[in-house]
Design a protein around this nucleic acid. Sequence first.
DNA 1: AATGAATGAGTCTTCATTCAT
DNA 2: GATGAATGAAGACTCATTCAT
Lengths: 194, 194, 194, 194
Amino acid sequence: MTKLKNEKYYAILQGALRTFAEHGFHKSQVSKIAKAAGVADGTIYLYFKRKEDILIALFREKLGELVAKFRASLDERADPVDSLRKLCEIHYDELEKDVDFAVVTQLELRQSSLELRREIGASFKPYIVLIEDIVRRGVESGAFRRDLDVKLTRLLVFGAMDEVVTSWLISGRKYSLRAQAEGTADFFLRGLLA
Amino acid sequence: MTKLKNEKYYAILQGALRTFAEHGFHKSQVSKIAKAAGVADGTIYLYFKRKEDILIALFREKLGELVAKFRASLDERADPVDSLRKLCEIHYDELEKDVDFAVVTQLELRQSSLELRREIGASFKPYIVLIEDIVRRGVESGAFRRDLDVKLTRLLVFGAMDEVVTSWLISGRKYSLRAQAEGTADFFLRGLLA
Amino acid sequence: MTKLKNEKYYAILQGALRTFAEHGFHKSQVSKIAKAAGVADGTIYLYFKRKEDILIALFREKLGELVAKFRASLDERADPVDSLRKLCEIHYDELEKDVDFAVVTQLELRQSSLELRREIGASFKPYIVLIEDIVRRGVESGAFRRDLDVKLTRLLVFGAMDEVVTSWLISGRKYSLRAQAEGTADFFLRGLLA
Amino acid sequence: MTKLKNEKYYAILQGALRTFAEHGFHKSQVSKIAKAAGVADGTIYLYFKRKEDILIALFREKLGELVAKFRASLDERADPVDSLRKLCEIHYDELEKDVDFAVVTQLELRQSSLELRREIGASFKPYIVLIEDIVRRGVESGAFRRDLDVKLTRLLVFGAMDEVVTSWLISGRKYSLRAQAEGTADFFLRGLLA
DNA sequence: AATGAATGAGTCTTCATTCAT
DNA sequence: GATGAATGAAGACTCATTCAT
């Protein structure tokens, strides 16, 4: 009985990730996911109530892992400037390393219905909060401008990185995503002015 | 007689815009769009080959209008810094003024399939190029940093604004979008550093 | 354009009657009904909202016809005794002549869910009322016992005939149903006592 | 050890009765019955080959009990007229006292397929035969009309009572079923004529 | 050109039944 | 015998698209 109790649960998520990445959410029939996961169609419904719940769970799990990695790498007491540079590096690095996840996050997620996206949005929250924390620490330490709107800034930072990743994917990943981290961090920190 | 032809063509686009805004992309059946446009279901297929082509055309038309507005407002010889500030203002202003369009652009149109999104991406191109022009002029004039990666920067700028608009919509438009323009432009120009 | 507008509507009802009679309600897949009706699966949903509505409509139509036949044959001013005898004759005669309808009415209808049966019950109402009318006229004219409970009697009469028909069907229709009319009417009129 | 076997067997029947009465036949999944019976899903298949066999057994058991009660109350040598009156009383009384059983017998169990109903029909046979016995004794004793068709009469009597019970249930049991026994017996005995 | 009735391919989900433990 | 996780067949319904009028 060394088998993991949730063995099938994770097999399904894994199969779904691969299937969504390859075919997109709407063209990923439940039977296709089941085959990719190596389980019967009906088995999926022992672990998920609706097909959409697979996507929701997938995001919760994967973004949870991602945030954990950030938390592990970013020292709460480190220099906010260093933290922001590191954030860019990890963001690009992790998505470049897990292309399936990147595809699903950047491209397929957006195909889901508005209600579904709202539910998934909750999974992004901790990551947005993490960005906010860095910005806030920067302001408080005097490293960042005192007049920054923290809530606005976290969106700008997230949105900017998000678009870079999406563009990289749509263009066919012809260049290194990781290599954009420095330019991105510079943009955030120094802005455009000479 | 081309005018009459255009009449139905635009009626369909108009009906589609209203229907997408109200029901979202996936719940906007062809028959619903036809009813909103005041034409028969079959008529739509005299003007569009597939349902998806309505989306593509809608995007092309609406983003074309938007870019035209930008071009009309932004003097090619104006100060790049002023141009960038103006860009933010117009971007937020136009979307705040036409919520239907904002909803469709930011939320509903992204529900389309990957291949479709690639096609729609072409419609964004002129706008991205417009941003690129401003950045390039800034670099060439010495107003912006010489070491800027123009291609990267245009994505960062577009992505950042895009996320702010989306967030504003999802949050229920509880604050002024236009009011975010100054902070956004400051972020782009001065960055975060004190 | 001499085509009947409801041509397909009745084709579907006809196909459904044949299919239900042969396979029963639950084993009559929509696609089977469509094939029997000579239409596409989807066409059925232009005329009926749910599969169950076909059954409901079928009963409404068929029982409507049946009641019309009764009304046509039964003079409101005729002797109640004669009317009751005629009722038995017509009841058995019509069902013997239309075995498909008999099978659906007596056997397949009962397979439907309780809610559905309630809806169908409404179609039986006019027939039950018709029986009640005869009984009431009999009581008022003095031909029938004054102490009869009209509401109870109409159920007893209907239930008795209903069971005879069902039994005849289940036994394989090995004898004449029509031939039971006299004995049935005698039972109703004279009772069992010598 | 057969007693233990019977324990679960009857637990399943009991669970099925409760489940059918509460949810109706079609919404009573095997797993629901198993839960009501306090056994595992698979256990049911140790005692019944198919789900439908539960129904058949339930009918056989419950109607067997009912017939036993009739046999216990009806003296074979009693006056046929009294016997028939008593039959009506017991029939209505027993079903009014056990509404769950009434619901299942009259409404839910009839939702089964035709083949199944044929099998279940066998369970009704002893009761029908019991009615036939009374009628036959009546004819032989001279109490009932000599020209009665015994086979037809047993159906008429059973069908009439059956319909009264069903109607009482569907109407929501707003009146006393037992109170209908006298009128019913009078109808059987004296008929309608004044 | 315009219509809208008709088409039929496509899919999520349920649930009776099995079988490894 | 008992379990309950796993199976996978089955089917109602939707809706983009066609085509006779």
